[in-house]
Design a protein around this nucleic acid. Structure first.
Length: 738
DNA sequence: CAGCTGTATCTTTTT
DNA sequence: GATACAGCTG
């Protein structure tokens, strides 16, 4: 079956056919970038006769990788084996799994996530003379990660003269931290990127092996690559230069993670004879949406500049929703969802609600749940970060890699076995003295003088349990191992008998879901003809983003952060919380680069929408436990007035207010102040007043005591049949009109 | 010395 | 509104 490129436009097609040498595809939002990339892979295989194993494709999420592989297979009409496609982290982990010994690890190395990393940092700084009250583990963690992303080593940091503040301690922390990881046979997320580069630099023959294998390299979302990722790719392609990168500088939103936008801006300098293709026709969004998004992003200065256009219809205007409070905002979203689904006959799964911070989801979730609208939440507390899952995963990690002291310490006394911190501390000291891994120390607990026989028996019990499972792990399947383990360790029993019935059920369910996902992993790997050992499963778990687990089948509304929405599209999109300080989010000082990144984030959000885009805000919002009045986001100002339709309470004044807010800031402020004052006058609630509460539902005010924010309000909640006494400041009640 | 209970402290975005 | 840590109790 011959491959047809007829469905591509001339630019896309040209980019597909240019298979040799460096290629930069500047692909605007919705310009068919995935289609182009997949067509290019299919073209290489089908038309150029390139073997799939000679192609490496890097995507931003595992989900994108999966989808791309499927699309290539459907273009070609048969299964594609041997193609390497995945995220930087998963590809690097795969290489490290093969080459671990060369770099001084075993192939059973553990991958440390942020939580493990924090524990490691804590452990390390406790042994150094770092003023701990001045620098939190989290600060240190961020700095370390940033430095590593820039491919800097401790010696580079030592070389910097006159180091101030944290920089004074950073090099020695870095050095000890790396030593700690190695002792634990562990790599953190950043190591996954760095180690392969070191490997390539120190072992030219190994570099050559991979460079020869990957004759054609493609990188998606190139604007979000960091220095280490840039170097990794560079090592691979420096002989043949067959590198095709795709990206959009307007969608660079990971600067805070060390992504360097100049990787894409300077691509032509790095790869001298690069051919550049621009994809500027947008196939996704209606004209009004695209015009609005363009109008916002054109306020940025760091751009290569594209002119995105569309042949699609104008569509409706963008609707601006203004709530009085965050709860009110959520209810306005709800109304519009009802409207879209019941009047306009759309499906719930066509709708996405986006926000800047995860914390914003709760109030929206509550409102949706109260109204029986099913939703799926991406991000927040991620599945594999749930306590009950991490417990079991930690057992598995220790079984696979006994040098992992972080996993060990997490579970040695969970479920409770009467082995406390003091005992662990003693064994730790003993192990350090003997220069053996902590786990080995457990096996020799009797040699630790200060530990009583009764206590060492408990420790030995734990040691024997793990040893038994290490042996079992070579005999039974991963699922069997995990479920036997959950039973015999007492974890299952612990959660089944938990005090809170509801919590207990959901935890047990999650554990069962974990077993299912191990089984699925097993099947999937077998189909691909790859190994399905426990190590690979744990690796997948470590590198799995929440978005990768997103199910697009079931008919429910999607809730996620603007970051998580990158690369996705929905017929109807809500961007919520469009207020100064929240979107754009402001920390400390307003720095211009940060503002531009926030603006790009806004642009990413807007360009997710195909047909309808709602922009919502609230005039007051509860943040950090206090209720604050808000100012409309400046991004709303940047959208031409005639593309907007403002609805909601008091819409006329709202729209004119932020339409002029730049020139008339004082006026806006006074207006908003007035609004908020109106809200907090004491006649908001009177006896007999109908109110709404996110958790308890509708109710009637029965009694009022005291004044102001401290006022106590007694409410009969009709749905629940209960009476509650609430403090006004925290009650989060909304008055309902009669 | 383990385990429980109450308080402090947050919440940017993620592989 | 959840988690981590300090401090108390048995």
């Amino acid at each position: 079956m011959a491959l047809t490129l007829d469905s591509l436009n001339p630019q896309q097609r040209a980019a597909v056919e240019r298979t040799e040498g460096p290629v930069l595809i500047l692909a605007g939002a919705g310009s068919g970038k995935t289609r182009t990339l997949t067509a290019r892979m299919a073209y290489l295989i089908e038309e150029k006769g390139v073997a799939p194993e000679n192609i490496l494709a890097v995507t931003f999420t595992n989900k994108a990788a999966r989808e791309m592989k499927e699309r290539v297979e459907s273009l070609i009409g048969s299964a594609v084996n041997g193609l390497w496609i995945g995220t930087f982290h998963s590809i690097c982990a795969r290489i490290m799994r093969i080459e671990a010994e060369v770099m001084g690890y075993t192939r059973s190395f553990t991958i440390y996530d942020v939580d493990d990393q924090a524990r490691a940092v804590k452990k390390v700084i406790s042994t150094l003379s770092v003023p701990q009250q001045l620098y939190t583990p989290k600060m240190i963690q961020n700095r370390l990660s940033r430095v590593k992303n820039q491919f800097l080593f401790p010696e580079d940091l030592y070389a910097i003269e006159d180091r101030q503040g944290l920089d004074e301690y950073l090099p020695s922390i870095y050095l000890s931290y790396q030593r700690f990881l190695k002792e634990n046979n562990a790599l953190d997320f950043d190591d996954l990127l760095i180690k392969p580069i070191e490997l390539f630099k120190e072992n030219p023959d190994i570099r050559k092996k991979y460079a020869d294998r990957f004759r054609y390299v493609m990188v998606d979302e190139y604007q979000d690559t960091n220095k280490a990722q840039y170097l990794f790719i560079k090592e691979l392609v420096k002989d043949h230069k067959n590198l095709c990168v795709v990206g959009d500088e307007d969608q660079a939103i990971y600067g805070w993670r060390g992504a360097d936008i100049s990787n894409i801006l300077d691509f032509k300098k790095d790869y001298k004879d690069a051919t550049v293709f621009k994809l500027e026709e947008n196939y996704r969004s209606n004209k009004n949406i695209l015009l609005a998004a363009n109008a916002v992003v054109k306020n940025n200065t760091e751009r290569l500049g594209k002119d995105l256009w569309t042949q699609r219809p104008d569509g409706e205007k963008l609707e601006v929703l203004v709530g009085q409070t965050d709860l009110d905002e959520a209810k306005k979203l709800l109304e519009k969802i009802h409207d879209e689904v019941f009047t306009r006959k759309r499906s719930f799964k066509d709708i996405a609600i986006l926000y800047r911070t995860n914390a914003q989801s709760r109030i929206i979730e509550d409102t949706l749940r109260r109204n029986a609208i099913s939703y799926k939440l991406v991000g927040g507390v991620k599945f594999y970060e749930r306590k009950e899952i991490k417990d079991i995963v930690s057992y598995l990690k220790l079984i696979v890699n006994q040098r992992d002291s972080i996993a060990l310490k997490r579970i040695i006394n969970f479920p409770l076995r009467g082995i406390g911190d003091t005992t662990v501390g003693k064994i730790e000291k003993f192990s350090e003295l003997e220069q053996i891994p902590l786990f080995e120390g457990l096996g020799r607990v009797e040699e630790v003088a200060s530990i009583s026989p009764a206590m060492s028996q408990r420790v030995t019990g734990f040691y024997n349990l793990i040893t038994k499972f290490i042996k079992l792990s070579t005999e039974i399947s991963a699922v069997e191992l995990a479920s036997t383990l959950a039973a015999e360790s007492g974890i299952m029993h612990h959660y089944q008998t938990e005090y809170d019935q509801y919590e207990s059920e959901s935890r047990v369910q999650n554990i069962q879901e974990l077993f299912r996902s191990i089984e699925e992993f097993d099947e999937r790997r077998r189909e691909e003809g790859r190994e399905a050992d426990l190590e690979s499963f744990l690796e997948e778990v470590s590198l799995m983003a929440d978005i990768d687990r997103m199910n697009t089948e079931d008919n429910s509304v999607t809730l996620m952060t603007l970051h998580a929405a990158k690369g996705l599209e929905f017929p109807v999109v809500f961007i919520t919380g469009l207020e100064m300080g929240l979107m754009p989010l402001q920390r400390n000082s307003a720095n211009l680069n940060e503002l531009e990144e926030e603006r790009r984030l806004m642009y990413v959000g807007m360009t997710r929408a195909e047909e309808r885009l709602y922009l919502s805000m609230s005039r007051s919002r509860r943040r950090n436990n206090s209720f604050n009045k808000t100012m409309p986001s400046l991004f709303l100002d940047e959208i031409p007035r005639d593309l907007l339709h403002v609805t909601g309470y008091n819409s006329a004044s709202a729209s004119s207010d932020y339409g002029r807010s730049r020139r008339h800031k004082t006026k806006v402020k006074s207006y908003l102040t007035r609004e908020v004052e109106n809200q907090s006058t004491d006649d908001t609630y009177k006896v007999g007043q109908k109110v709404y509460h996110a958790t308890f539902g509708k109710g009637i005010v029965r009694q009022l005591e005291g004044q102001g924010d401290r006022m106590k309000i007694s409410v009969d909640f009709t749905d629940e049949g209960i009476t509650k006494k609430l403090i006004k400041e925290f009650a989060n009640l909304t008055p309902l009109e009669e």
